[in-house]
Design a protein around this nucleic acid. Sequence first.
DNA 1: ATAATTTTACTTACCGTTCAGTAAGGAGAA
DNA 2: TTCTCCTTACTGAACGGTAAGTAAAATTAT
Lengths: 202, 202
Amino acid sequence: MAKISKKELIIEQSRKSFSQLGYELTSLESIAKECGITKPAIYYHFKDKATLYKAVVCPEFTALAQKIEESTQIGNAVERLNAYIHTFGEFLISNPDFSAIFAREIANGSKTIPDECIEQLSRTIKQLINILHTGTSEGVFEEESPFLVQMMIVTPLISCHTTRPLRERIANFTQNEIIPLEPHFKNIIESLSKKIIKGLQC
Amino acid sequence: MAKISKKELIIEQSRKSFSQLGYELTSLESIAKECGITKPAIYYHFKDKATLYKAVVCPEFTALAQKIEESTQIGNAVERLNAYIHTFGEFLISNPDFSAIFAREIANGSKTIPDECIEQLSRTIKQLINILHTGTSEGVFEEESPFLVQMMIVTPLISCHTTRPLRERIANFTQNEIIPLEPHFKNIIESLSKKIIKGLQC
DNA sequence: ATAATTTTACTTACCGTTCAGTAAGGAGAA
DNA sequence: TTCTCCTTACTGAACGGTAAGTAAAATTAT
């Protein structure tokens, strides 16, 4: 059994709660309860709720930026863009709480994202800018706003996770129609990557 | 000057607040204040906060479904898909509060969306299913999950609006890099439409 | 036409609850 | 003894929602 500090335990439970309920509806007392401690114990480890949120969120963005940078170093522009998309998608698989947290931030104007995370995000964007620029220089990609490409990658993948209940409810209303079963997420990553690359190619 | 009932005024102010702050952070007292009335006056017109939210949200989804249905009747599959995407994009322009509200619902598992809205959403999805099916029958489109296509359309367009502050903050960190100015929204719609159609075509 | 009554559209005052955050103290380890 | 890591007990503010009352408009009765 791995030794896990109480501080780490608080962060893990908080991540689940922030992901499922969002920042506002997450109560520190319920987190404490699930950790088997009391609320002021959280205040012993973290200054306030916002600081706890940062402690949850920052490592995720840092890990994402790290993985993106590592995986998009080699290959031609098409290969690197493909790696960018797949790395992001697989990050969402291995960090199941990240989708909902990031989706809320996107919906929210990112008011609650600390600067440290923005810096990490800018690392990934820089990488994407580099890939796209290389691609246009090589004449394989049409010129396109990196922010648009980023949104074409990030938001559909994220919302695959967050819209599951929505899709189920919609499917109830479209009974008579034949709705193809949703493919597994790895197929979605692959499918999205192909389409985006195809859409960008000259 | 158009005659506007107080009930309509409450709905309009609520829409702004729900869009800017989200459901939880919207306080009925602040809405009342901006309408020049008191909180119980809202309760005279609406049973509770959730009912008020429905009154804000339902007409938007209905109008969207209506416009989508109208605009995607004629033409071949490519033209109809193009119309679908443009109609959705232009709806976001003429309903500036809708993006944030919908984005929050997507992030949220759509817990607070009433069934009435889901029904309207299913109308638009049915239309998209029809378009894609026609396209594959005609051999112009590859087969693809309508939900994925829907997300490729909806989420980037929505997040164009909600991520504006995020993009600005990111741009601050990438000073030294050349970040192309973000194109205007109509160009984004056009650009996204082209890419999605290109990505889907055989 | 006018008086009586009811309904509309609110207001003031308040309740109960929830929640972030704090003060003070205590048990156990070093 | 002192530091770490917590607990008990609490404060203050905000919020959703309600009870009770009221001025003015609309409706009905005389």
